[in-house]
Write a protein that binds this DNA or RNA. Sequence first.
DNA 1: GTGAAAGCGCTAACAC
DNA 2: GTGTTAGCGCTTTCAC
Lengths: 332, 332
Amino acid sequence: MESNKRVSIIDVAKKAGVSIATVSRVINQNGGYSKETEERVRKTIEECGFTPNVNAIGLRTNRSNSIGVIVPDITNEFFARIIRELDTFLLSRRYSLLVCNSNEDYMLENMHIKGLAEKHVDGIIYISGQNEIKEISEIKNLPIVYIDRAPKNAEVLILSDNEMGGYLAGRELIAKGCTKILFLRDIRYASTIRSRKEGFIRALGENGISFSEELEMSCFPEYEETRGVMERLLREKGCFFDGIFTTNDMMALACINVLMENRIKVPDQVRVVGFDNISLSQFASPQITTIAQDTKELALHAGETILKMIEGKEIRKKKTIIPVRLIARGTT
Amino acid sequence: MESNKRVSIIDVAKKAGVSIATVSRVINQNGGYSKETEERVRKTIEECGFTPNVNAIGLRTNRSNSIGVIVPDITNEFFARIIRELDTFLLSRRYSLLVCNSNEDYMLENMHIKGLAEKHVDGIIYISGQNEIKEISEIKNLPIVYIDRAPKNAEVLILSDNEMGGYLAGRELIAKGCTKILFLRDIRYASTIRSRKEGFIRALGENGISFSEELEMSCFPEYEETRGVMERLLREKGCFFDGIFTTNDMMALACINVLMENRIKVPDQVRVVGFDNISLSQFASPQITTIAQDTKELALHAGETILKMIEGKEIRKKKTIIPVRLIARGTT
DNA sequence: GTGAAAGCGCTAACAC
DNA sequence: GTGTTAGCGCTTTCAC
């Protein structure tokens, strides 16, 4: 309220009649001061409205109390949810989030990484979604936690139980009477997608249903692309299946829309299960049965892990698997 | 690659055989050096992989080269898109984005604001979405740009041309033959919503159609809530209208789904226009006609404006209106 | 239990 | 056109 200059630790020290060292000790709770001194200093800090200058702290300690998070597309609800959870968790631990949207663009990503290095972030959370992700050599000894995908030599990885997701999807479809189930997957065929397929086939096997090549289709996992694939399939082969398991909800929605436009009833004639439980799956009509990834748990684990790494603690689990669950709705 | 210590400006100076001042001059392009010196210094910087320490710069210049952005819910695609644009724009200007998700929670928001102040952000972009937003007194002389909503005494505000949006929606519906158009609005009735209504009524007026009380409905602008309102309306009054203008796309989708479940054809019997052009509106079947807010332009203006304010330039326009446009699709 | 002082990496004023 | 140096606000070692 006084001048336009920030109040510094020196002002506090003067006003409290102690040295700046003592003020610093109190702030950092490093001990080595009397109860009375502490109280006086705290009161003064309060009165002055003192807030420490993070640049000075960062310069001195080489830490910034901020964490960079790299994400391919913040506009994708799945990623946005993770960021939201990270944000509130890290706020509670007095860290800030530097959000970097890579747009799946190599150049942008490099610039962001450089920016994060310059900003002296204490760690990086790397939410990939990409199939192949590159080694980050620009950043030397920085702790990095990967979510969902990771390069070969990654230290720490957190991901959903994709195998179980595939299994639950398969089991749900079978339980509802499906016997010829289409598996429509992301054409990029990342390890996460392979796991989903494995789980799916496990469910089939348990029920004596065999899986054949002609039941597997792939495409770029967007709405229009998926529509194209489904339309062609229906045109060329007709509706020879009674169930579909897609590797995301957008693909499921595209299938459902194409089916309905062709007067094929969902779920009466064909049942559909998606993946991710994005909000869209509730707003479709009928609502889409899907496998929910636990974004909150994913984010919390990532946050806790990166903080541990920053504090120099050893991480026991290199790879953490977060459970998924089936959300049965109108399409099965 | 050498030791684990960061290379500083001193290392560069030594290696290039100049003083640190000269290195600093080259980095900041402040002039006062020869072509040859510049070249030598640049080469050395490159070789060492030197990146300036932003904490030191911040401490010295009292700037952090980072901007805080407060957003009610990053999970909302409209906000996410703005953040994405801001992110790439600011990256190009060597600024980072500190993203704060307020979750529409007063406590969280306060903590975030305190955090931003401590982090010494150079400015704040405040994307509200809220009806009433509070004065930010915690932050003294910090430049703030508001998007969409702002408190009374706000300096700078950027928002969409909501009046035109309402007008375009009304005109589209009328052009397609509608004469009894329902106006279904967000119950919070913010100024942005009022503008949309004004534009809508202007379109009606131009075509000699009068607007009556019974054609205006309101509800909390979410999917389930809107469904409830539509279901009740249909049950109690039947389908007495031939068009609907909703103040967002989610509400439009809810209406369309309820109508179709009641065997009312869209767009044959009832035409619908939404607002925002979220991606969902393309994935619905039929695709939803809507008013697109130009998130890119919104973000760019906000970014440019905040940078100008940070540089101390005078802002001529206190309030910038960004054009909207009609996207005609399957529901009209 | 407390204080003095060095120094983190940089910018900018000043000197030449 | 270039170098020297003070000092930004803080932590931390070393005295006492």
